[in-house]
Each structure stands twice: as structure tokens, then as C-alpha cells.
Design a protein around this nucleic acid. Sequence first.
DNA 1: CGTCTCCAGGTTTTT
DNA 2: CCTGGAGACG
Length: 666
Amino acid sequence: MGIDFKNLLNSKQYDAVRNYEGPVLILAGAGSGKTRVIIYRIAFILEKGIPQKAIMAVTFTNKAAREMSIRIRELAGRHLRNLTISTFHALGSKILRKSIHILGYRPNFSIYDQQDKLALLKDLAHEAGHKHDSIDLYAVSQIFSGIKTGHSTWTAFTEQYEDLYKAYNSHLKLYNAVDFDDLIVLPLRLFQEHKDVLAEYQKQFKYFLVDEFQDTSLLQYQFIKLLAGHTKNLCVVGDDDQSIYSWRGANYENILQFEKDFPHFQEIKLEQNYRSTGKILLAANQLISNNKNRKGKKLWTGTEDGELIQFCIVENEKEEGSYIAEQVKAIKLKHKVPLSQFGVLVRTNSLTRSIEEAFITYHIPYKVSGGMSFFQRKEVKDIIAYLRIIANPDDDVNFLRIVNVPKRGIGRKSIEYITHIATEKSCSLFSAMSAIRHAADSEINKKIKTEIIEFINTIEYYKQKFFSRKKLAETLRGLIDHIDYWGYLVQEYKKGNTAKWKYMNVEGLVNSLADYEDDPDNLDPNLYAYLNRITLLTQDDNQDEENEEKVNLMTIHSAKGLEFTAVFLAGVEESIIPHVRSMSEDESNREEERRLFYVAITRAKKHLYITACRQRRKKGKVEEVQISPFMEEIPKDLINVCEHEDEVTQEDAEDYFKKMRLGKGL
DNA sequence: CGTCTCCAGGTTTTT
DNA sequence: CCTGGAGACG
């Protein structure tokens, strides 16, 4: 490739790149060129003649993995197909696809997301005789997650759910399904209990990179440690100030553990920030210095001071939306910032709506990532459920989802009967149903029996079709027509053009499958691989949209690792950030919320706009809200306070907190 | 027995 | 505003 590494990197970055052997810990502050270092490091390793397939780079989100592939492709000038750049979960799913039979599952396993998991728990809780609202299944599912990942143990309180937990896991196994936690837990178990499997992977992979190391969980760390224990060529990159996933078991103390496990590691600190202007960086530094529990580092920048941070207090979320839309237009015009360089960040997914509406009104193209992602929409999930049943008929959760969608007369009583048979034979619902087909006499009436046979035939017909011929998307289109899903939508959603909209989403799914099978990078496109893939894809839908001229709207969590010339931070209000639900417990939660705010601020290169409302609509009710206390932690001389439309002078702005509380008497 | 209609509730962040 | 549940019809 002939890259002049030395001149393209500063001396610290260069160190981080060229020390490619042995354990390396890179502590990289926000905007210090972390991703750049990883990209160049991979390029450097490749230049040393190491084959692509010996390199494994693990990131945290699909977005980050995609970003990384694109950038390495740009740098290398070619597509590196055998390079492994993946999330932990996607990696786990690949390993399981290959070796899950060792653990007694079949290779066509289903992956259950949160919704599937809850559906299963709901059934089991019902069966166990728990009254419908006597049990908070959402909380229970989180407890189970903690137990499974070893993040927590049974307590006097949680013990009551132990039976449910056992039932949950045995049913997963019966359905030949795994949940998200299993994607880490099971590969780890494979490695620990089947040394030959581990050896196989160790033989292939020699160089390891882990991005966002502060966000890895204990199990994920153990997983990578096993793989890399062999060569010790493990490079981890992290920043304790950007640890925002502790609720999911992330543990930045993995950094300490790393130091223990790999005693002769090299430590490299990247503290020069190339991203943000002086004022933005100063604000971020001041804010984060309020956290007690941190390693402490000084980020500095050589770039200009830049403009003040704009803080705008508006009446309600509607005004907030139009303020942001107007400012986007103004900045785009004045500073010639392309739309793709705008990031609008919010704490929760539900906050995107009002901003989206404003963008639509102002004709500003935008895209939202995360949230109710495409693949979780009801209509899309229905069709996916068909595919899942075709791939794995034992998947009861997805079976129940579609056995009577569209309506085919197989209602509650019939299902109860099938369930009864399934329990008796301890087999899946689909098997039980197939048994009914052949049984001479059964308690099921003729008409329903005909429907059952028709359903089974449909599934089997398409199963054979999906696996015998290559045209996946075309086959899916045939299936959708066959079950007359369109007719179902029309009947179900009579008002407005909801049905049409939903059908467009269904078509979107077909297109996604078409894109998948037409992608030349997919050497072996097949239904199993496609299903596994989309289950892990919560974020943005498809391919290379990165060139599109659109404003980016997303949560702070999904903005991690990204940067934008102009950042808008909306809904900076008490109870949103820090979020009410995080405040309940101890101070460490507050610190995490502060880190979240820190991550948000440090996404901005040049322009940072913060907005807060006086009142906000929550669940239909309008509520008075206060400014986030974190705003007080940013030095006032870095901020220009304004009202929507009326610019406010600096003296007026002196005490914006007081003014807020007095209401709108500005 | 299955379906339709009306009513309540809403889960922080992601894989 | 949208999804799921409960109870009324057909």
C-alpha cells in the first residue's frame, strides 16, 4: 500500500500503530483520532505481510463496525473481504452457526430479540399461573439477563423467579433458539469446554483489536482474552470518560483486569484532540471534571477557540423542532456545512418525533438511526416470523406470532389444543400441528383442520422453495402474495393510508433481502445467514447510505464514535438528562449520565447548539420542565443564551436558571 | 369459537 | 399515537 505512516500520524498515534505486536493499551480521549489509529494499525499490520484473515477487529455497534470497514477500504483502496470487523454479538452468531451443534442445538437456530424474549416469558409466566399483571416481565427479563451473563446473582428477592428462569432457558433450547446474551455466553462456553474449537480460532486469528474497550462486559473480555491469550497480540482502545453502557454489564474496570492479565503491556495515551474547537473542548473538560470516579486526563487542542456554544430555551418541543430546523438551514447557508455533517442528538428515542416533524415541515432531508428500527415494526416482524418458521419450525414464539396472521381461523381454542399436544409430547407447536394433520380423529373440527393443513403445506412448500432455488427475494414476494398479506393490512388498518405505509415497509424488507443476495461480498447468501444478520441489526437499515445528504438524528448512545461539524443537543432538561429512571439508585448513575452528556458535547467539531423546553408533552400531558443541572457545570462565558427568534444579550443571559424558574418573563 | 371494538397504558440507553 | 388486552357480538 505504501502509506507514509509517520507523516500521517502524530508521534503518539504513530507509536500506537507501529507497536503491533504484544499487548497494547491505548487510552484515547474523545476526538484524539482513535478510529484513525485503529484503521492505520490494521493497515500497518497488513503491510507487514500478515494475511487479512488473521486480523480481528471488534467494535461495539454495527454502525461503528460499518464505519470502520468503509474507512479501511478507503485507506487500502480496496475491499478487504477476509478482514474480520464485527461486533461481539455478530461474531458470536457466526461462531455458533458453525459450531452450535456441539452444544446440542441445531445450526438453524433462531435469535430472539427483546420482543421475542418478552413474548416467551409472557407465555411461560401465564402457564406457571402468574396472574397477568402480578409480574413485571420487563424487569424479570433484565434480572435474567444479569444472571445469565454473570453480572448478578440470585437474591432473596429474585429467587422467586428461579423456576421461571429455568423454564425460560429450557424452552429456548426446545425451540432451538438463543437470546442476545447467549450470543456471548455460548461461544465462551464453547471455547472453555471444547479446546479444539478454541484452537481452531486461535489458529486463524493472530492479531486482535478491541475498540470502545470501556464498554465491553466481563464476558466479552473473557472471550477475547481466550482468543488472544495465545499470541498476546491484543490491542485495546478505550476511554473511561466515555463509558456509557454500564447498565448493560459494561465494566471499564476491564482496563485494570487487562493490566493484570497482560503484565508486559504498553500503554499509550492519546490526549490531543483534533476534533473540537477550544471552547467546546473546554466545556466538555469542565463538565467531566465533576466526575470523581475517573482516571483523569487532560485533553488539549491546537485548533482555534471557535464560537460560543448556543443555548436556546424554547417554549415547547414544537418550537424546539422548528428552532433546530431553522438553525440547520442557516448554518448550512452561512458556513457551507453539508447536511450529512449535522448531528441532532437526544437522550431517548421518543424525543426524535417532534424534531422529525419539524424537518418534514421545513423540507430538510434527515435520517433517524435506532429507535423503533425498521426490523422491529409489526408488519416487518410478521413477515420475518414467516421466514423464521421456514428456517426453524420449532421456533414457537414466531410460530404463535403468525399462525393466525393473516386470520385463518386458527384461534385461541385451537392454539390451546395444539399447545396441549405439544406439552404432552414435549415437542414444538409446529411438530404438534403436523401430528394433527395425520391423526385420524382429533378434537379439531374439519374446517380448522383444513386450515391447519393449508398452513403447514404453505410453510413446507416455501421451505423447499427457499432452499432449492437461489432467488430469495422473489420467493419471499411469492409468499407474501400467497398469504395475501396486503389484503390483511387493508382489512386491519382501514383508516388513512396506514395499510399502504405498512405495505411499503414490507416491500422494504423484500428489497433488503434482494440487496443482501445481490451483494457480491456475500459468498453464500442464504436464508439462515440473512435472518441472523438482521436480528442483530437494530440500527440503520441497509447499505452505503453514507454519501446521502441528510441530517443525522439519533440518540446519544448511537452517536458514540461519530463526529459532526454541527451538533444539536435537544431536550437538555432535568429528568431527561440525567434521566429520571437512572437517578433512583446511587451517584454512579449520575456520573454515567454526565459521561453521556460529555459524549454528546464532544461529538461537535465547530458548532454546538443546545436546546431545552419550558414545557414538554409527555404521554399526552403537558408538563413544566426544568433545565438540566448539567448546564450549570459548563462555564457561563462559553455559552450564549438565546430565545427562539429573540437574540438575548450576554447580561440578560447571566442567570438563565433563575429566569427559567420564573417562567417566561424574559 | 373466532373476530371486532373499545380502552388503558406506555418501560432509557443497544446487541 | 400506537399496541395489546378484555369483553361484546356473530
